[in-house]
């Protein structure tokens, strides 16, 4: 099966030809398989929205390629099969919830009967059946987000781009929407979920890419990234010679004042590190741990900033 999304060496620099501009997206490559719920996480300004907009054809790449469902990004036919929920969506305030959905249905050239049925169905699905007749001016942020979800479901898309779908929501709405995303995943839809709400991503995503300052710093399944058996070995009084010596076995090495932490993936390597350090440093602790995504994220971001 072809990839739902394929991004190769994608770079986006805003503002034309000025050489000293910092790229918003810097030579990234990744693929998202069909049926995957893909988490795209990173701090604000990391390049998440830019990437999504390129994939939707709203922005044009400076270089590199972006394919969606086997076609170049922005292809009009592809748009029949995808949908997009922008961050904090806002719709025409003067319309009622039902009118907004009806309007978006028209954009898919649906007939009147089909639109009516679809509107009803979607409003029920996002829990707004009772509020469809009210104008959006009277809606809370959570309700607007639900309308946003509803409009993203109109065409029963194969691929959904959700940009921060849970930001700023009350806990109940948050839970509802997270469940909805999970159910989409179960239905076999491909979901491209951009978020900095790591809890959500951890709950629903199969695979995750971490992007920071326009670069993908980590990509893989959650299991890969947060594999059990990871061990942190902490030394005191370790010389730089030792640091160089253990690097081949370690995933990462970080120095924090006197303390040196060595992150090791396999048990075998734990032994190798301990062997190498014998007599050259004071062993402080050997701690096996399972990371949360948040730990990983914070760690990565902090590291990259150094």
């Amino acid at each position: 099966m072809a990839d739902a999304i394929a991004v190769r060496n994608l770079t986006k620099v805003y503002g034309g030809a000025l050489k000293d501009r910092v790229p918003a997206v810097d030579n990234i490559s990744f693929t998202v398989a069909q049926g995957e719920v893909f988490g795209f996480i990173g701090p604000n300004g990391a390049g998440k929205t830019t990437t999504i907009k390129i994939l939707l054809g709203l922005l044009f790449p400076t270089s590199g390629e972006a394919e969606v469902l086997g076609k170049p990004a922005g292809d009009i036919e592809t748009k029949r099969r995808i949908s997009y929920l922008p961050e904090s969506p806002y719709f025409y305030e003067h319309m009622t919830g039902a009118e907004v959905i009806d309007f978006y249905c028209r954009l898919f050239r649906m007939g009147a009967a089909e639109r009516k049925a679809k509107t009803q169905e979607l409003l029920e699905r996002v829990g707004l059946a009772e509020d469809g007749h009210r104008t959006l001016r009277q809606y809370s942020k959570g309700m607007l987000q639900r309308i946003g979800i509803a409009q993203a479901l109109i065409n029963d898309p194969d691929l959904l781009f959700l940009d921060e779908p849970t930001s700023g929501l009350d806990p109940i709405a948050h839970k509802d929407i997270t469940e909805l995303i999970a159910s989409l995943g179960r239905q076999g839809k491909t979901v491209f979920l951009s978020s900095h709400q790591l809890g959500d991503v951890e709950t629903v995503c199969d695979r995750v890419a971490i992007i920071n300052r326009g670069k993908i710093v980590k990509i893989g399944t959650l299991d890969d990234l947060l594999r059990a058996g990871r061990t942190v070995i902490t030394f005191a009084k370790a010389g730089s010679e030792l640091v160089e010596q253990v690097k081949p076995y370690a995933e990462r090495v970080s120095a924090d004042g006197e303390l040196v932490r060595v992150y090791v993936e396999s048990e075998e390597n734990v032994h190798s590190v301990l062997d190498a350090a014998r007599g050259k440093a004071t062993l402080v602790s050997v701690l096996p741990q399972r990371q949360t995504l948040e730990d990983l994220f914070v760690e990565i971001v902090r590291e990259v900033r150094k």
Binding site: K53, L56, G57, L58, I76, E77, K79, R80, I82, S83, Y84, L85, P86, E87, S88, P89, Y90, F91, Y92, Y104, L107, F108, R109, G148, Q151, A152, N155, F161
Partner: peptide, 14 residues
């Protein structure tokens, strides 16, 4: 500004 254009242009609208 309202980001409505994104939802519209993400649909099959030329």
């Amino acid at each position: 500004e309202r980001r409505t254009i994104y939802t519209i242009l993400a649909k099959p609208v030329k």
